[in-house]
Design a protein around this nucleic acid. Sequence first.
DNA 1: ATTCCTACCGACTGCTGTCT
DNA 2: AGACAGCAGTCGGTAGGAAT
Length: 313
Amino acid sequence: MKKELEAVEGTQYVTKESILRRAREIKGIPLRNVDKTGRLATGKGAIGTVIEESWFGYTPNSESEPDFPEAGVELKVTPYLRGKNGIRAKERLVCNIINYMEEYDKTFQTSAFWHKCNTMLLMSYEHLADKPKGDFRIDEAVLFSFPDEDLAIIEHDWETIMEKVRAGRAHELSEGDTLYLAACTKGANASSVRQQPFSELPAKQRAYSLKSSYMTQILNKYIFGNAESPRIIKSADVLHAKTFEEYIIDKVKPYYGMTQNELKLRLGVDSNAKSLNEILLARMLDVKGRIACTEEFQKAGIIPKTIRVQSNG
DNA sequence: ATTCCTACCGACTGCTGTCT
DNA sequence: AGACAGCAGTCGGTAGGAAT
């Protein structure tokens, strides 16, 4: 696709404020009225490209720099769905390709991920199943930096990914390895592989991505500003000292081996509800009220669904 | 041809509501 | 309480464009 717009790159959008102001002007405009180059009619990736090209007026590129290098802002256009449980992310948010050969000996702070994605301009649109893309419209735009409590988890996720690479196991990476930041496959087909530093085995090409469960959390907390989600971790400080898993294990450890009845006595719970286990777990974690270990925790993206409490005795 | 960018697609799994 | 259908959520993979 030929560039048909005046180049404004490097001249107009050099501050975060000017970028955000421009981003907010697009709210409510059907994308068919934004698209100046017929880009929407093309296939995947069309919507983000329309906004880069026709709205911000820069040429789509394949550089590993943020989209607005002077301001250090990365543009991300991301769809959401409106379901009966409210708003949720339609997709994971894909960041940059992981260069196994270069990333492994960096720190999180010097990593390609952090360099590119530490500040993102998130622009959201509702994905409507039966409508053409031209009907879609951006309805929120925010500048997003990771809050401390999330950053601690993301940094831990980054380390988990890098540990596999350093162990010569990049070919065994999986999105299930981590909580918020994941390594998702990326490439034309299954033979899109690349070299890894500590093994002869070729590894699938992968990119950093923010999981859709975490994106749902971001949408609700920071983009559409809904009610605060339930939390276990009250202060980011604890996570700088311990990992998420260590924190949970430490909290639950004193109760290892106790029966349900012993736990009820110890924790002062007088209930025979079907949800007794989650009530007990909530008490162990020092969380107020009825915090489900299934639905509410997962909706908040805080706990993986595989955490369960055995129910007999 | 290769590498990275832009999201998007679809198969599976397992949760949840509803009916018996 | 058990069976089961439907659908939400997850994750492995794919499509198309531009630069080099």
